[in-house]
Write a protein that binds this DNA or RNA. Structure first.
Lengths: 199, 199
DNA sequence: ATGGATGGTGTCCGTATGAACACCAATATA
DNA sequence: TATATTGGTGTTCATACGGACACCATCCAT
């Protein structure tokens, strides 16, 4: 049972994608019916059911509406002459564009971008000039990369444990481990990173 | 006339953004009212009006619903001058507006996102699992990080010169330099990088 | 041939939705 | 001090919305 990968349904899916590209939403059953040429809303409803089954759309967390799911954004492999050894690109010609912001930012209201200064984390692949995505007031665990406030200064380090105490480990042999005297004040946890090459 | 950048409204905007991150849509007036603690839908409607005025949201092309506009995805970039002893800044306001996708992708039509496999570039701070931003059909120069096609395989290396010929330099001592026999075929130039920490 | 899925039509119904309007209280502004 | 602006409440109303149900035609497997 191939679930719903009918010829027709992928045609419908295509039109849904087009609509979504413009309006950033799954339209109402009525509009879907019009879009697809259905005479009844029920047909639209059943189509959505099939697309859900196939993993293209899903309900919102509050179960109030439809939202696109993973597969909805997958680029169509068809049409592209895929050569051997080609990487599975995420965003190529055809499908929905890959939104970096969406990929990196989970809770916008608590997320801040912070430019990196210095090379104390260079061995962790975090360079001077990179911009890290920082989620504030997120519970930090040992091993996380965090922005801490030490002596009234912001510093980017790996949070670690040593004899039951938190320490801040740089990833650069030229820098010393920081062992805070009293309470360790954290600004936030690094959840992502972006880098731009050349000017 | 600062349009609508009230203190309160940016708080509301934050909650809207969080909701959108989860549900990928602007909720109904009713739900907005609940979310913000309004007793009436009208307040929600007026809030949307203000947010539209300020350029955070807009109507869908078919004028059927609200959709986020450009500014909706603005993240705040922490000031480069990190003032000592003032960790209370930032949050919603504070830094300058920063659009992640605009920062990384300059020519969307020629840009592709490619997941990185392997650690041949680890000493350049490019890790397994990172996603590189690749601009196709861009003139590559020595020193650029490129995706080349060697023996029908895609490979990520630094483009370099050696005795008048192009070579591909890995950034990992365990890997050998690649010296292509004939013509060197390039897929594109790496113009950016995206990394996400933890699951 | 026949019977069950399956994609689609048509209709009914309760309700959540957005628009419109009158009104109020706090805050600026003159 | 007087007054306009603004963020918010409360209510009414037409309607678009999704869910449910009965029904039909085609396709496919037995």
């Amino acid at each position: 049972m191939p679930a719903s990968d009918t010829e027709r349904d992928s045609e419908y899916l295509g039109r849904l994608r087009d609509y979504f590209a413009d309006a950033r939403r799954i339209p109402s059953l009525q509009r879907i019916a019009t879009l697809m040429g259905f005479a009844s809303k029920t047909a639209a409803r059943k189509l959505l059911g099939r697309l859900e089954q196939a993993g293209f759309i899903e309900r919102t967390p509050d179960d109030d509406a439809w939202m696109p799911a993973r597969r909805f954004f997958e680029r169509s492999l068809a049409g592209t002459a895929v050569r051997a050894g080609a990487p599975d690109m995420i965003d190529g010609a055809g499908g929905e564009p890959f939104l970096v912001d969406d990929y990196l930012v989970r809770t916008p209201s608590r997320t801040v971008m912070v430019p990196v200064k210095g090379d104390s984390m260079i061995e962790a692949g975090i360079h001077d000039g990179d911009i890290v995505v920082v989620e504030r007031s997120k519970a930090a665990r040992s091993g996380d990369i965090v922005i801490a406030i030490v002596d009234n200064e912001f510093t980017l380090k790996e949070l670690s444990m040593e004899r039951g105490r938190f320490i801040l480990k740089p990833h650069n042999k030229a820098y010393p481990v920081i062992r805070p005297k009293g309470e360790l004040e954290l600004f936030g946890v690094v959840t992502g990173l972006v880098r731009r090459y050349q000017g």
